[in-house]
Amino acid sequence: MSPLLENLDYVATTILFCIGLWTLIADSNLIKKVMGLNIMETAVFAFIVTSGMIEGGDAPITGPGAELPFMSPIPHALVLTGIVVAVSTTAVALALLLRVHREHGTLDIDELRGRW
């Protein structure tokens, strides 16, 4: 199998990342830019989680009925923290947008550029 197909999961997350990047840059509505940012963040979290996968592996919770090999628990822990970071950034971004909307009345970057 060519390496591209073997690591299809990684390639898929990269494509998602670039879609997010495209939205972040192209869209002129600020909220859509924040959405683009979130797509990029989700793509990176997806990449980190899938990197922990092991063939035929079980969820890393020991207990009755769970047997080796286990997925690596570390990516899951990292992504949990990453998600909270993403939420925090988005919260501050939306709060800023509320203020920008109240002060300038619009959330379109082209209109705003001329204004302030």
């Binding site: 390496p3 073997e6 090999p69």
Partner: peptide
């Protein structure tokens, strides 16, 4: 990404 160690293989450094 394609050049990364094979996805899911048990002997990659992660595991």
């Amino acid at each position: 990404m394609a050049a990364l160690p094979r996805h899911g293989s048990p002997d990659q450094p992660i595991h």
